[in-house]
Amino acid sequence: MIDSYQRPPTTDPIIRVDHLKASFGTNTIFEDVSFEVFSGEIFIILGGSGCGKSTLLKHMIGLHEPVSGRVLINGIDITDAEDSEMMQLRRETGVLFQSSALFGSMTLFENIALPLQEFTNLPQEIIDLIVKMKLGMVGLEGYENHLPSELSGGMKKRAGIARAMALDPTVLFFDEPSAGLDPVTSVELDMLIKNINKGIGTTMVIVTHELESIFGIAHRIIMLDKSKKGIIAEGNPWDLKEHSIDPRVMAFFNRHVIDNKNKGM
């Protein structure tokens, strides 16, 4: 799985997060978080449990309102966008949720066809073909009449990706894609993400803490930390693993327990 030294394909930012602060009530999750995601790259947000990775992702897709700061996608500030601009942006982005979030009462075909029927004026036979193609891309050909409850966890994730990709978005967000999957399925999913990124050039923003995924597919990463309430590292994962001197970063990449925790135990 060890890949050659990966560099981001471009350096034009498609997403810019600017001094973002998020909190639930009086509990600040993170503050002063700023970074850029370049067009066409696989960008991974990582960190231990409870550091605010998923919260950051939800801010980036506009599901949560930040306390302060901005998130710009394609130059549009989503914290302050008009409804019409937001609708347009939502069509250009796709999201895979942690639990796949497929609609349980609809078949896979209906799940994937839904955005196509609502947001495009394509004739039904083309929609049928697009759905079949998307299912083929994620290795689920023939499953169009299955209900989500008839699928395994890994298949649900893949179907979730197919739905997220239905409108050929330019940015795909993934919330813990390999959580709860076996190592083989998880590697398959990584390959799928990589192939889509390479083939279509879709920008990928992924929240994960799976080391294999991080080293296997990431062009760049940022690492969040609970105690700092912000970013503690940014860059290429191989670089960080070899050269970072921050004990928290080293602990994460080398699966150590940090010393001061040991003392406390």
Partner: peptide, 19 residues
């Protein structure tokens, strides 16, 4: 590359279970 990404067999694959 983009065209190669499309699995042509999937386009004509019969559904595993009927409607």
């Amino acid at each position: 590359e983009m065209i190669a990404l499309i699995n042509r067999d999937a386009l004509i694959a019969e559904p595993l279970i009927s409607e």
